[in-house]
Nucleic acid binder design. Structure first.
Lengths: 342, 342
DNA sequence: GCGTATCTGACATACGTATGTCAGGTCAAA
DNA sequence: TTTGACCTGACATACGTATGTCAGATACGC
């Protein structure tokens, strides 16, 4: 009772191997009648193409492109590193990936990058960038060319991408809210909320989740309006000192920003790290060491290794027309505290 | 500059394909001189065997056996389900797995199961069972027969297994301690600690981690001696009522046990679920719904899907003599609260 | 009946590896 | 010199699939 092969299909359908091949690979020149016979045989025997053998015969190479923001983000750095590591491990599986760094704040640059993709030399694209109308159109154009496209980290809900590889950011915001609410031992107080830019879809969604849960479960804790830091040390220093002065009841900080180093520096100088509950996003060298030192209380994280491996698996499955294991591709919202940091 | 093949090796080493094959597959009948030449060529060209092509030629089947505890544990149930799902997805990769349920409390039964394994009909074993001298010997015997063996969930430190697929349980205990300490809003109080059996290695390690962190960070919180429940509803009811009576300052519960349903029932009846901080292990239907209802405050979890996929990947790599990606195989200690439950 | 377009099957070759057979080679011991 | 042990290379076949060529079959309009 071995796995059926194309030969079994041919025998079962009463046609030749060539015909089976023409049907399976959607080539023309087969009567509808025979197409049906083959499909019925496939169905009956439960045939699944052996992708490994097929790839061997085709000398297939999966060439994927990752479009990532440039700039000095530790998160993107760890993401790139994880990608390179994953690809090194998948080299035997004929998977290669190239990274294209673009200025994510410039929609035009993203469009240019996407338009430069030659569908004949690339088999799939993963994109981490904010969605603008231009970007959306460029993606639709790629999809028309038959390329699978997945959104990475930040969703692109209007671009008809094949898959979103990332966490539910509204839930991530709620998770942060619950941790803040439970770690803060008072019933009343205000919470400083910072991010790089409120243009990014993930920031918007996280803020939404934060407010929702705070209002519901911790009405005494008031998250202040989101402050945009734009990765600017001067601005960060200014924001922190105003916040400390204006809000004597400050009890916690929720940072969705990437510039946590400068933020921590200011708070350290103000000697406020011990009495403030600090929840940040993404595990980087900065947040890890702050966790270990007890300066940051919890980090909301998505596993970069899981992200890139999932993106690669999904892209490969789409290229091969195979289905995916949803449970394996769900990216979890991970909570990291000092003790499960490793 | 494609990936080198055996042909390239043969040309580079100046020998025939047959000789290359004899060297690569460690067959006898090659002069040491030529063995060296082939090995040098492999090194120089960076040859890696194409496992897919090799498996195709060999018609290889990976037949793995999972030895799991029987009995009505929801955790083992979800583990089995995850295994079946993973195997269904890997069927095209020639991976099959069979589950053998044994009475994990009976070392003799485990040994019998392990001895029944025919190395000719099985390519690797994953074991979730407590380590006893008999079990250790049976495992060593399997390894002598050339079978790769991995420990699942609970480590087998003296059995010389190829790999441990699971979390660091001492860290899991510390993680639970930190959550309890921060969620409990008082500085003083006692904590009820329950498990099924203190014989299981994971329970011992978790308790150790718990005590370590509590003493260090929350000296006012006193974890009571571990109570063994043995999955017995009567015993559970009795333990809970004594604990509630004797310890008026009870502030939290740490459950490493599987019988959380009965435990929750008792506390529900005593109306103590709202003021007690409850931290449990493993996400099951019972703990999930208790999390959603706010009865359990946090669950320490290891992803069963990740566990089984990791075990399968590692076993396959061992069979093929390939290396593994350590980052991918590290099982994380996951913290689940209501908001990141999904 | 013809020519033509469309369909079908037989066959060959390839992908990278595994495995077996067999003739011929070298070299030491008999 | 012969025998045998050992080593080597040439060649064939296979795994499951992809792809191409080409002869022959079928059906159609005329």
């Amino acid at each position: 009772m071995n796995k059926p092969t194309v030969h079994d299909i041919a025998r079962e359908a009463g046609v030749s191997l060539s015909t089976v091949d023409r049907v399976l690979n959607e080539r023309s020149g087969v009567r509808a009648f025979n197409v049906e016979k083959v499909k019925a045989a496939v169905e009956k025997l439960g045939y699944v193409r052996d992708t490994n053998a097929a790839n061997l015969a085709k000398k297939r190479q999966y060439r994927f492109l990752f479009v990532l923001p440039d700039g000095a983000s530790q998160f993107v750095d760890t993401l790139s590193a994880a990608l390179n590591e994953a690809v090194a491990g998948l080299l035997i599986e004929r998977v290669t990936a190239q990274i294209l760094h673009v200025d994510a704040t410039d929609p035009h640059a993203i469009v240019l990058a996407l338009e430069s993709i030659d569908p004949a030399r690339c088999d799939g694209v993963a994109i981490m960038a904010p969605e603008t109308p231009q970007v959306r159109d460029a993606i639709l154009h790629l999809k028309e060319a038959g390329l699978p496209v997945v959104a990475l980290v930040s969703n692109l809900p209007n671009s008809n991408v094949d898959h979103f590889v990332g966490v539910n950011n509204r839930q991530a915001g709620k998770t942060a809210a619950l941790l803040l609410g439970r770690f803060i031992r008072r019933d009343h107080g205000s919470i400083l909320v910072v991010t790089n830019s409120m243009l990014a879809r993930d920031s918007i969604e996280r803020r939404y989740g934060l407010d929702e849960l705070m209002a519901q479960d911790f009405p005494g804790l008031g998250p202040l309006p989101t402050v945009e830091l734009h990765d600017d040390p001067h601005r960060i220093a200014q924001v922190v000192s105003t916040a400390l002065q204006t809000h004597a009841d400050l009890a916690g900080i929720y940072s969705m920003a990437t510039g946590n180093a400068a933020l921590l520096d200011c708070l350290r100088r103000a000697k406020r790290l011990n009495d403030l509950v600090f929840v940040a996003h993404e595990l980087t060298p900065v947040t890890s060491s702050a966790l270990l030192d007890g300066e940051i209380d919890a980090v909301i994280k998505q596993d970069v290794g899981h992200l890139v491996r999932s993106a690669l698996r999904v892209l490969r499955a789409k290229v091969d027309g195979m289905s995916i294991l949803p449970a394996q591709e769900r990216i979890r919202i991970e909570i990291v505290i000092r003790e499960n940091l490793l």
